[in-house]
Every structure is written in structure tokens, then in C-alpha cells.
Write a protein that binds this DNA or RNA. Structure first.
Length: 313
DNA sequence: CCAATTTGACCCCA
DNA sequence: TGGGGTCAAATTGG
């Protein structure tokens, strides 16, 4: 029964998420506006479109657990990759079964492989101030588990930039990444740039993997969940809000008062979204729903819960 | 022993 | 060609 509420909420969230993107798109191309007065760049529109399709996909999956892979409108574009070469986390390095690899190729082709499409991934930065007690280690602990995969000295920057990817990249093909760059001006501020959204369940084992993934993994991970949820509203950052596979909870302190300052980063120029999200993050509750995670760590996970990977191939 | 981090090399693209 | 991003072997940590 809990699961039912969870699914309903997730479904609702997904639909609303898609609706928001759709409305934004609608507003930008309203017939009442002259064609030239559209205030969204094509890149942003593409992002919105992606969000809408993604929301529909997820919602449908939640409803019947079937895949939409066969749908020609969602099917991969037939354009072959220009460079068949190096692929992040190439299948050769994956010790999974061949079916997973095949699926991996499909997914990554669609969302992440070519740098052209990688640029279309939702990308936003947050300026985060380290909390005093944490010292100099920085705000590197949101609820997602990240794995550092690189560090670079950046030209003209005092501090190196750190690169993180989702821990579950190889097991669940989750392509979310983030970069952390300590600010030159104010060393207590870190600029965290997120790219892509989590498609992992951040601990919930995939149905295919349930023999190899012990249940306690779930419990461990969910113990970190806070009881509150901040929903990103407006802008493209809303992609970060995608249930049930992910629930972006940011536990670190953000600047500009209670809100989260975010800046949509893109090559889109003057019409970038920049704004202060004035959600009630101070209370920690969602501005839309009172979404609470009441997760019993001892409860058994319904591995039959439809995920993106259900019925793949 | 396994997983995370470090770090120099490699790759892509402006 | 070099700067930024990623890979992966070596190392460290739990």
C-alpha cells in the first residue's frame, strides 16, 4: 500500500514535471506572440522537449511497466555515431551480461554518447557555501553518491576543478555528473555544476540484478534520505526533479538566503535563465507536494517496480 | 578484498 | 595546438 502511494505520487510528479515543461514551451511559441518574440533559444526548447518526452516515458512506465522503446517517435534517431571510438565506460569495461551491454549502448546513444547530444543534457550550477563545521573539504555531500573521476587545474583559477560521476554509472547506467570548482573570489563558495540527471534509483537494485545485489544495499542508501524535499521550480533545472528514479535533495547550505541560487548554463547567450528560486527551502517542504520519504529500511523492496530498465531489449 | 581516490595520459574540439 | 574533460592504472582506505 505504501508502494501504491509512492507510485501514485511519482506518477503525479512526473506528469506535472512534463506539464511544466510543456507549458513553458507553449508559452514560448504562443500564436499570440510574433514568431520573432519567442524568448527561448532553440537549445532550451530542445531541452524542454526532452523533458516532456522523458516525463511521458517515465509516467507510462510507471503505469504499465512496459517499455516505449519500440515507439518510433522515441526510438533512437538512425544517425550513426560519428566516432565509434572511446565511449565513457565502454562496454568492454563492463562485466555485466550482454543484454545489459546492448541496452547500455542504446541508452547512451540516445542521451550521452555524442558530445553534441551531451551538450543538450540539462546543466545547471549551484553556488554552495561550505558549512563552517565541515572545514575545507567542501560541500561534496548531497544525497547522491558520487565518485570522483578526475581533477584538473584550470587556467586562471586558483583551485583545481573536481569531476564526479554517479556511483551507479556502471551498474545502472546513470550518467549524471557534477563538477566542483572552488570560487576564486570567495573560497568558502563552491560552484557545483551538475550535468544530466540521475536515472539510477540510487540504491534500489534493478530487477535483473536482484540476485547479485543484496537488499541491504537499499537500506544503507536510503538511510541517508532526508524527510524533506526541495522541488526545483521553473527553468530547466526542473529536470532534476524526476521521480521515482531520483530525488534531488541538497543537504548543503546554499547562499542567497533560503532559496537556491541557480544559473542555467548554456551556450545560449543572453537569454540564459538566471534566477533565485524562492521556494520554501527553509522549511524544507515541497512547494507543490508534501513529499516525505517514509522509508522503512527493513522493508522489502518491490523489485517488480517498473523501472527504466524493465523489459529492455 | 573491494571500492574510492589520485594522477598522469589520452582524447576531443574550439 | 592547448585547455578542458575523461580514462584507467596505481594507490589508498575501510
Amino acid at each position: 500500500m505504501e508502494m501504491m502511494n509512492w507510485e501514485r505520487r511519482s506518477l503525479l510528479n512526473e506528469l506535472i514535471h512534463g506539464l511544466k515543461a510543456a507549458k513553458q514551451l507553449q508559452g514560448s511559441s504562443s500564436p499570440s506572440l510574433s514568431a520573432s518574440s519567442s524568448y527561448l533559444t532553440t537549445e532550451i526548447k530542445e531541452n524542454l522537449l526532452h523533458n516532456i518526452v522523458s516525463s511521458f516515458e517515465k509516467a507510462i512506465l510507471m503505469l504499465n511497466g512496459s517499455t516505449t522503446q519500440h515507439n518510433p517517435t522515441i526510438e533512437l534517431a538512425p544517425d550513426p555515431l560519428p566516432h565509434p571510438g572511446k565511449v565513457p565506460g565502454s562496454p568492454a569495461s563492463i562485466t555485466g551480461n550482454p543484454r545489459s551491454e546492448e541496452f547500455f549502448n542504446v541508452r547512451s546513444k540516445e542521451f550521452n554518447l555524442s558530445s553534441k547530444k551531451r551538450k543538450m543534457l540539462p546543466k545547471w550550477t549551484e553556488q554552495v557555501r561550505i558549512s563552517p563545521e565541515r572545514g575545507l573539504e567542501g560541500p561534496h555531500d548531497d544525497i547522491f553518491s558520487w565518485r570522483k573521476y578526475g581533477q584538473k587545474d584550470i587556467l586562471g583559477a586558483k583551485f583545481p576543478r573536481s569531476y564526479y560521476r554517479c556511483t551507479f554509472r556502471n551498474t545502472q547506467y546513470c550518467w549524471a555528473t557534477k563538477q566542483v570548482q572552488r570560487s576564486d573570489g570567495d573560497p568558502t563558495i563552491f560552484e557545483v555544476t551538475y550535468r544530466g540527471t540521475h536515472t539510477c534509483s540510487q540504491g534500489i537494485p534493478l530487477p535483473e540484478k536482484r540476485e547479485t545485489k543484496p537488499k541491504h544495499t537499499v537500506a544503507v542508501n536510503y538511510q541517508n534520505l532526508r524527510a524533506s524535499l526541495t522541488v526545483r521550480t521553473g527553468g530547466l533545472g526542473s529536470e532534476a526533479f524526476s521521480f521515482p528514479v531520483t530525488s534531488p535533495l541538497y543537504t548543503y547550505e546554499s547562499i542567497s538566503g533560503g532559496g537556491t541560487f541557480y544559473h542555467h548554463v548554456g551556450s545560449s547567450g543572453p537569454s540564459d535563465f538566471t534566477g533565485l528560486i524562492s521556494t520554501n527551502t527553509s522549511t524544507g517542504s515541497s512547494p507543490i507536494f508534501d513529499v516525505n520519504f517514509q522509508f522503512d529500511p527493513t522493508a522489502e523492496i518491490d523489485t517488480g517496480f517498473p523501472t527504466f530498465f524493465h523489459n529492455s531489449i
